[in-house]
Design a protein around this nucleic acid. Structure first.
Lengths: 122, 122
DNA sequence: ATTATAGTTCAATGGTTGTTGAACTAATTT
DNA sequence: AAATTAGTTCAACAACCATTGAACTATAAT
């Protein structure tokens, strides 16, 4: 299932999308794969060797990353057995902005409430 | 000086740390709690009411957030039953920079390799 | 002291998901 | 055609974790 529309600005009350996206990223092997692909387009076998990861695991995590839209896959025109993985730059940019927008220190407001009562000093 | 020079290549340790941190954030209720606390310091009961969440669940998720350092807890001097939760601004800033540093489009490199062979055109 | 309020801790449960190994498809080579 | 290489899909397993409900601690009000 394609879920490439996960990287969007969250609507009011629906942080589930952001959570789902973070969940995808909250995996060491996937971060390693992302890092590797950011360092240059790679094929499955190279990625597996570099990470000492079984091919099916590489395939699994790459499919998750591809579903998120963050990574693109392209079959080689030279040798159809090879598949090249690359970062979707616009999606990465959107992700960056989404995260920066949510975890923004300027959103922090002062003022306390407790049990429905507004507090001033404390 | 290029920006990419400032971003040191993350080692496996820091990558696991990043994954662990993302895992903490990859939870809808915790994002809701964070958002709520960003909108103003809150106590457990208010947070529970606002999110329609059982008190023990609120407590659980808040403890996870507190353990991460992103949220601070302070018992009220006025009424010891109340505990106020607030965003640790410096931690949030550090988180923001960490994420911005990792998911940085300027890290994307061109050039492909496949099965150990460097590719030029393709 | 008794009751009420605020919050935590515990054990059990259920769903999700990373991992494993094997079987499978697809493209190329001999 | 057969064998090789590249990569995927499948079923089963194991570990993690959010949720639930109940019991528990602590502070304050009556």
């Amino acid at each position: 299932m394609k879920e490439s529309d996960q990287i969007q600005k969250p609507r009011e009350g629906t942080l589930s999308q952001l959570a789902a996206l973070l969940k995808i990223l909250a995996e060491p092997n996937r971060l390693l794969l992302l890092e590797r692909i950011m360092a240059g387009v790679q094929c499955n076998c190279d990625l597996g060797n570099a990470l000492s990861l079984a091919p099916n695991l590489v395939s699994h995590h790459l499919s998750v990353l591809c579903d998120s839209g963050l990574v693109d896959a392209r079959r080689s025109e030279d040798d159809g057995r090879w598949i090249f993985y690359s970062i979707n730059e616009s999606k990465l940019k959107a992700l960056n902005e989404l995260l920066a927008g949510f975890f923004d220190v300027s959103r922090i407001q002062s003022g306390s409430t407790c049990c429905g009562k507004k507090l001033t000093g404390e």
